[in-house]
Amino acid sequence: MSTHDDRTAQEFWEAHYEEREHIWSGRVNAQLPGILAGVTPGRALDLGCGEGGDAVWLAENGWQVTAVDIAETAIGRAEFAAEARGVRDRITFERHDLSDTFPQGTFDLISAQFLHSTVRLERPQILRTAASAVVPGGLLVVVDHAAPPPFSKKVPHDHPFPSPEEVLADLDLATEEWERVRVEVVDRDGTGPDGEPFTWRDNVMVLRRRA
């Protein structure tokens, strides 16, 4: 992915989190509860955990979670949220620049929710590595933006927003090893910074590794 900033990826994201006391809502990402409805909890890996909304929700719903982010500031906030909600013992936090290092182990669920960046992020490589760490019968869940929000001023004009099929083509996973549980574009309602309504378009990709 192209780099649009002279800072390292870690410097960029540390500065981003230091802009405000809280960047994200603290709630679980919108698509994840529906995707996991009826799925038996096990070991989960949350890629790019941010301030911990997904990791905490997963832990509250019975998952044992490894949550990773590039920014120490984000991890500190996520740890605080986990402690406040009584699930700190169910989450292991690790700092990784996923373009260079990846958590050890295998997982029943690997979740990449809106793993976008305008600085270096080797996304296809990261998602291929993630796929290799999913146990037979486990899920790889990727949700990302199909397009930027209309009010965004921070996304460079050449920042890619690939379709679900383009994402999966980049991953090049063997069809005999992976089942497409759900691959689609989903619309959801959103509210802009000035209260104006708009429609998010999410790419939703749910793949199950065949047993």
Results as ranks from 00 to 15, higher is better:
residue 5 D to N: 07
residue 3 T to K: 14
residue 116 H to C: 07
residue 47 L to Y: 04
residue 167 V to P: 02
residue 186 V to K: 11
residue 23 I to M: 10
residue 124 P to H: 01
residue 173 L to M: 01
residue 55 A to M: 06
residue 168 L to K: 08
residue 200 W to M: 06
residue 139 L to C: 04
residue 88 R to N: 13
residue 111 S to V: 13
residue 73 T to A: 10
residue 139 L to M: 08
residue 82 A to S: 14
residue 64 Q to T: 15
residue 135 V to W: 04
residue 1 M to D: 11
residue 98 L to W: 04
residue 84 A to R: 15
residue 105 G to F: 04
residue 177 E to Y: 09
residue 167 V to T: 14
residue 201 R to H: 15
residue 14 E to F: 06
residue 100 D to S: 15
residue 158 D to A: 12
residue 151 F to H: 08
residue 47 L to P: 00
residue 141 V to A: 04
residue 87 V to C: 12
residue 149 P to Y: 08
residue 18 E to C: 03
residue 186 V to D: 05
residue 163 S to I: 08
residue 110 I to C: 06
residue 13 W to I: 00
residue 67 A to L: 08
residue 73 T to V: 13
residue 24 W to E: 11
residue 128 R to H: 09
residue 149 P to R: 12
residue 73 T to Q: 11
residue 11 E to P: 01
residue 7 R to W: 04
residue 94 E to L: 11
residue 22 H to G: 10
residue 146 A to N: 09
residue 68 V to M: 07
residue 54 D to L: 00
residue 146 A to L: 08
residue 18 E to V: 05
residue 11 E to V: 00
residue 23 I to P: 00
residue 65 V to I: 12
residue 9 A to Q: 02
residue 107 F to R: 05
residue 59 A to I: 03
residue 110 I to H: 07
residue 59 A to C: 07
residue 82 A to R: 01
residue 173 L to T: 01
residue 32 L to I: 05
residue 163 S to E: 10
residue 69 D to Q: 09
residue 31 Q to S: 13
residue 165 E to W: 15
residue 141 V to W: 02
residue 123 R to L: 05
residue 155 V to L: 03
residue 153 K to N: 13
residue 66 T to Y: 05
residue 169 A to R: 09
residue 63 W to S: 04
residue 176 E to F: 13
residue 37 A to L: 12
residue 88 R to K: 15
residue 175 T to G: 14
residue 163 S to M: 10
residue 70 I to F: 11
residue 146 A to D: 12
residue 33 P to L: 10
residue 123 R to I: 02
residue 107 F to E: 04
residue 30 A to R: 14
residue 73 T to L: 08
residue 206 V to D: 03
residue 120 R to A: 12
residue 96 H to P: 07
residue 44 A to Q: 11
residue 185 V to W: 05
residue 174 A to C: 14
residue 94 E to F: 04
residue 9 A to M: 00
residue 116 H to V: 07
residue 144 D to H: 15
residue 70 I to H: 02
residue 62 G to A: 09
residue 172 D to W: 02
residue 51 E to V: 06
residue 84 A to Q: 15
residue 66 T to A: 11
residue 2 S to Q: 15
residue 148 P to H: 07
residue 77 R to L: 09
residue 26 G to I: 09
residue 137 G to K: 09
residue 197 P to T: 08
residue 112 A to Q: 01
residue 106 T to R: 14
residue 62 G to Q: 10
residue 88 R to F: 10
residue 26 G to W: 01
residue 158 D to S: 13
residue 11 E to M: 06
residue 24 W to S: 07
residue 39 V to R: 13
residue 72 E to F: 11
residue 16 H to V: 07
residue 37 A to S: 14
residue 11 E to G: 00
residue 117 S to T: 06
residue 151 F to S: 09
residue 48 G to T: 05
residue 199 T to S: 10
